[in-house]
Amino acid sequence: METIQKARTLLKQEETLLLLFIVIVTLISPIFSPEFFTSYNFSNLLRQISYPAIVSIGMLLTVLIGGIDLSVGSVMQAVSLTAIMLVQLQAPTGVIVIVVLALGLFLGLMNGMLITFGKLQPFIVTLGTKVIIDGTTLFMTKGKGISGDASDSFLSIGGGYMGAIPNPVIIMLVLYIIGFILLNKTIFGRQIYSVGSNRVAAYNSGINVKKVQLSVYALSGLFAAIAGLLIASRTGAYQPMSGNSGATGMELSAIAAVVVGGASLSGGKGTIWGAFLGALLAGLLFNLLVFLNMNPYIQQFILGIIILAAVIFSASKNRK
């Protein structure tokens, strides 16, 4: 009796549901692609998933405080470009890493300041900064890709392996563990949930709401920058991207991961574990679509449908 009860509550949790989906997608994938279970394909797939998955951590933080960051994809691209420009200047790898991560933090902080001190809606601010960042990137490159003679140490960041596992995957896992500790084991994490749940009550509980908000947007910029750095250092070149891998696609993927993972866009609800599973599921699905040799536009279409379904699902659940 009790086990049934337990199974029921377990089934009701969306994490369980997500895991189930993930297992199903994993199991049916080999039907369409015999080489699915080869280690080469698997590590490649996980690497592809790692970029949006890392960005999703930052997105989750902003969504948890009731905001959103629509500029993450653009920050990612701007960071990639900056990294390659520094490569062209033959800057040491350490300097490149520090500069681009600082750039991400700075851009995120800009969003945070405009939202916090300008008292503006997050979506309009980050939409605005997105256009500015995209515009600047376009201005610098005139729409062309650039490449440089990257050092091995730079290329090894995103291109290297630890054992059989690609570095980006390791970094993603480490970041998720850090994210988990941050959200569940630190005061800052509790403050994030509190601010998202009720700003006024958070302020009345002695929480520095402005500081929390600024930190969250800065972190969102940082996570996007890490993803951007990993992409740039994998190939040693900057390619203006479009479609699912482009800026807008990245934002949508991150939002999809977070919302599919059970976070509420009105704030205060969502888990890092859910975001991880959401990112994983979205990645596996796309992989499947690629196997099916599907037109990339249909993939985009499906991404849109998934997001729409996820937000509808999340909204209807939160109404209860």
Partner: peptide, 17 residues
């Protein structure tokens, strides 16, 4: 024309402010 999107973004944010 590559500068124009930047200006566009700036106008949005300034106006919102």
């Amino acid at each position: 024309s590559f500068v124009q999107p930047i200006v566009r973004g700036l106008i949005i944010i300034l106006a919102a402010l």
